[in-house]
Design a protein around this nucleic acid. Structure first.
Length: 888
RNA sequence: GGGCGCGUGGCACAGUUGGUUAGAGCACCUCCCUUACAAGGAGGGGGUCGUAGGUUCGAGUCCUACCGCGCCCACCA
């Protein structure tokens, strides 16, 4: 057999194998009607993205599933790609421009876009390269970008279709406006954060009266746009004021006092200033009462010409000055501290301004209905299940989606306005079409101007599960692919984007494909640092996966992060946690190296499984095969339930603590024996296959040494579960007769300072011939594992010599002659301690067993087990008492 | 205001439908460079499972309340 290098060096193998796989197109999937497809579409990272631990976790999970399913005979397809990330990418390029003291307006739309594309050409594939270093088995030939020609066509197609169905409309509404990015945002893009704000109380004088009404606000600067004061109609305090007029301070505008049920008499003073152009509630009130809408801000949130003398000031500066001016006029009452939730731009974190503007919206209610049904009836399942509720809650309260963005980088709206006849209400002179129309259908005019806005990035990514397959089609062949691969199997993602993306993909799936986009949604946790903070660039607490790969290896990174991630729970990482994976890789390497060193090719049967089936195996061989298959059974079960951490830990446990700690040690004695050779080979080549999805590189490297002619491990099948080789009672015997005795014997050595090298003999006291026979079957194993020269079986009633120390197992008393150095007193103390613990334990059991209700109600099996266990303890105690007597 | 998750040895976590004395890892202590592996091997100490009740023969596990931490959603200005 070929040998492995003495020292495991991941650097020598990881890159090498990835290139091989890619060159050989092992990641490629195609329509194959003989096989069941297994499909995952990658959550497309932003082109501006650089790999962080969240990606590492997300993509490792997907890669494991893809590789596992491929080995299970599926046509596994992992569809990769990137997202153009409108605002984020535009910001990056704008920042670059800023270094040249330029704005995008300076260079103009066309040139700016050219620069973004250049940036994309240069840096846009960084994340793809990084995913490759993670080992991702994506079908790179299919890599898509949300602004590819074909993909863009899908986006426009969808816009046109929805418009024609009257699902898209344009209108003036209060939207979330980011003054920094200068664009509208959807509700999801403006998450609310609690701020320690202030509530300002201001006096508004009532016309022709000495009275004034006090209103409270968190944003005093909006008062410049007030067009009413509202009170609750039932509020006795203000009833007399309804219908009167107020003089708006600073602006000297006359505004009415209106009554509206919306007003909560309990909050503030019970009187509300109404600014219809700057607050969503006020907007509604404005509509109801036919108020004037006065916009007092520029798009950058500085005050505009409607703000009187405050024009030109920034909103926060204006706030300050307005308060000062009101104070001067004795119209400012007080300020209270007040926590309230304020929207922030999810890209630049600026405080978002509710802003009245003309935008495009998608009517969501009709789209949501089938998406709600599909989750309710289980056609789509969330893992863990609890996210179902979060999803349904959002879906059932869905709001219309603002999809127009005032930026340049993205899909420009396929909307054209006639320069001659387009009117403000969009009643005529508007054409929605994928192609630029030649003339206006209403007036025949030929000057058609395209809408300046682009679409929300998510308006393209919500089509990902089918647009990546070429929808809408021009060629029949590709349509076949969609038919074969859609719906996909599972979507693996983080909770943050359930609303942004997952929910919308489900809606678009039904709307355009008439079917679910995926069957399962696996929501994994968030990656946090060891103090529980989310890992993020801005906090500076992230661990760079590439550094971990450099220091510990990709396999180590993957194995560590997976074994730490229980389903849906957040992952707490620190650098040292990656040592576990590295150590395991090292263990796999060394164990494999040892086996390969000792295997004789001639002794390994051509068909090992077939050979082993016919052979009468020794206990150790049968045992380790049983262990392997019972582990495999559990691993399969864990994988089918997305419990990847459980699977990883089962693998670790079997490989390290059963195979290496016990079996390999036992095999050493007669390692050249054919059966042992076959078992070592059989388990090694199978465990490599099982480990492969988790640690693809090291397993491939070793695989080629174990099986030089079989081709890549990527193309092997997952081991069949051979239940007939699982032998529970053998596993139990091995545990009780060998492992427990080994541990006890080692303890005797350790407690009595006997050097590992020193060969010792033990005496084993057994009750009867049966016990003796049982132990004798395993005698050799105990000798090897505990480094025992000889075992002398003695009658239970004999007593060991005065220089013996003893331990009690469930089957025997093990004694060892430690000669002169015996610590009689210590020994006595130890035994007494054990006895007193047993007394407690037994009395607890006695109490339990004496409880009628227990015996009556508990399942017979449980009671039986309890009785047996009590008897065993009793026996053990008797043995210990004898040992104690011997000590005295 | 609603919803969700978490609180288990020094640290960070497992614990599957309630059933022996609650488990591995890291760290710690002792011994060992035993010819696969010191990134290793052998042994060991350490937890009244957040608190208080309840259901049950039996609760880390189910129920209720409370405390603490974190997250998500929501138009009380």
């Amino acid at each position: 057999m070929s040998e492995l290098a003495t020292k495991y060096s991941f650097k020598d193998i990881e890159e090498k194998w990835y290139q091989q796989w890619e060159q050989n197109k092992f990641f490629h999937a195609q329509v194959n009607t003989d096989k069941k497809p297994y499909v995952i579409v990658i959550p497309p990272p932003n082109v501006t993205g650089i790999l962080h631990m969240g990606h590492a976790l997300n993509n490792t999970i997907q890669d494991i599933l893809i590789r596992y399913k491929k080995m299970n005979g599926n046509e596994s397809l992992w569809m990769p790609g990137t997202d153009h990330a409108g605002i984020a990418t535009q910001n990056v390029v704008e920042r670059k421009l800023a270094k040249e003291n330029l704005t995008r307006q300076d260079v103009g739309r066309e040139k700016f876009l050219k620069r973004v594309w250049e940036w994309k050409q240069e840096y846009g594939s960084t994340i793809i390269r990084q995913l490759k270093s993670l080992g991702c088995a994506c079908d790179w030939d299919r890599t898509r970008f949300t602004m590819d020609e074909g993909y863009s066509d899908a986006v426009l197609e969808v816009f046109v279709q929805l418009y024609k169905k009257d699902r898209i409309y344009r209108g003036n509404y209060i939207i979330n406006w980011c003054p920094r990015c200068q664009t509208a945002l959807s509700d999801e893009e403006a998450p609310h954060k609690d701020l320690n704000g202030s509530l300002y109380y201001m006096k508004y004088p009532i016309k022709d009266s000495e009275e004034y009404v006090v209103v409270a606000t968190t944003r005093p600067e909006t008062m410049l746009g007030d067009t009413a004061v509202a009170v609750n109609p039932k509020d006795e305090r203000y009833k007399h004021l309804i219908g009167q007029t107020v003089i708006l301070p600073l602006m000297d505008r006359e505004i009415p006092i209106i009554s509206d049920d919306f007003v909560d008499p309990e909050f503030g003073t019970g009187a509300v200033k109404v600014t219809p152009a700057h607050d969503p509630n006020d907007y509604q009130m404005g509509k109801r009462h036919d108020l004037e809408f006065i916009n007092v801000m520029h798009p950058d949130a500085s005050m505009n010409e409607n703000a009187g003398e405050y024009a030109g000031q920034d909103r926060f500066q204006a706030r300050k000055e307005i308060i000062e001016d009101l104070t001067r006029r004795e119209l400012f009452l007080k300020v209270e501290s007040h926590n309230n939730a304020v929207g922030h731009c999810y890209r630049c974190h600026s405080v978002v301004e509710p802003y009245l503007s003309k935008q495009w919206f998608v009517k969501m209610k009709p789209l949501s209905l089938p998406a709600i049904e599909a989750v309710k009836d289980g056609r789509i399942k969330f893992h863990p299940q609890r996210w179902t509720k979060v999803y349904l809650n959002w879906m059932e309260n869905i709001q219309d989606w603002c999809i127009s963005r005032q930026i340049w980088w993205g899909h420009r709206l396929p909307v054209y306005y006639c320069a001659d006849c387009h009117d403000e209400e969009d009643k005529k002179g508007i054409v929605v079409s994928k192609q630029r129309p030649n003339k206006c259908p209403d007036c025949g005019g030929t000057k058609l101007v395209q809408d300046e806005d682009v679409l929300d990035t998510w308006f393209s990514s919500w089509l990902w599960p089918f647009a990546t397959f070429g929808w809408p089609f021009s060629q029949d062949q590709k349509q076949e692919e969609l038919k074969y691969f859609y719906p996909t199997d599972v979507l693996v993602t983080a909770p943050e984007i359930i609303f942004f993306w997952v929910a919308r993909m489900i809606m678009s799936g039904f709307e355009f494909m008439g079917d679910i986009p995926f069957k399962d949604v696996y929501i994994h946790g968030t990656v946090r640092d060891e103090t529980g903070r989310k890992m993020s660039k801005s906090l500076g607490n992230s661990i760079d996966p590439l550094e971990i790969i450099e220091e510990f290896g990709t396999d180590a990174l993957r194995f560590s992060i997976i074994s730490l991630t229980s389903v849906g729970q957040d992952v707490y990482l620190s650098k040292d946690k990656f040592e576990a994976g590295r150590n395991f890789a090292n263990k796999i390497w060394n164990a494999s190296r040892f086996i390969l060193m000792n295997l004789d090719k001639d002794k390994i049967a051509d068909d090992v499984d077939e050979y082993l089936k016919g052979e009468k195996l020794d206990l150790a061989e049968a045992w380790i095969l049983s262990c392997f298959y019972s582990s495999l059974k559990d691993i399969n079960k864990a994988l089918s339930r997305y419990r990847l951490n459980e699977a990883a830990n089962l693998i670790y446990e079997f490989f390290w603590h059963q195979f290496c700690d016990y079996y390999i040690e036992l095999a050493k004695l007669n390692i050249k024996e054919k059966n042992i050779q076959c078992v070592l080979y059989s388990i090694l080549e199978k465990i490599l296959r099982v480990v492969h999805p988790f640690m693809p590189f090291i397993t491939e490297e070793i695989w080629y040494k174990v099986n030089p002619d079989a081709g890549s491990i990527m193309q092997q099948s997952w081991p069949d579960l051979r239940e007939e080789l699982i032998d529970g009672s053998l596993e139990k015997d091995m545990k009780e007769l060998v492992i427990d005795s080994t541990v006890e014997t080692r303890k005797l050595r350790s407690e009595n300072n006997i050097k590992p090298k020193e060969k010792k003999s033990i005496s084993v006291f057994v009750e009867d011939a049966n016990k003796k026979a049982a132990l004798q079957k395993y005698e050799e194993y105990l000798k090897i594992l505990a480094k025992i020269e000889d075992i002398e079986f003695r009658d239970k009633n004999e007593s060991p010599g005065l220089t013996f120390v003893s331990a009690v197992t469930s089957h025997a008393v093990i004694s060892m002659d430690v000669g002169e150095q015996i610590d009689k007193e210590g020994e006595l103390k130890k035994v007494e301690q054990q006895i007193s613990e047993l007394v407690d334990h037994i009395s607890r059991k006695d109490k339990l067993l004496a409880n009628e209700n227990y015996v009556k109600n508990a399942p017979a099996q449980v009671v039986e087990k309890e009785k047996n266990s009590r008897d065993e303890l009793q026996k053990k105690m008797e043995e210990l008492k004898k040992i104690k007597d011997a000590c005295l």
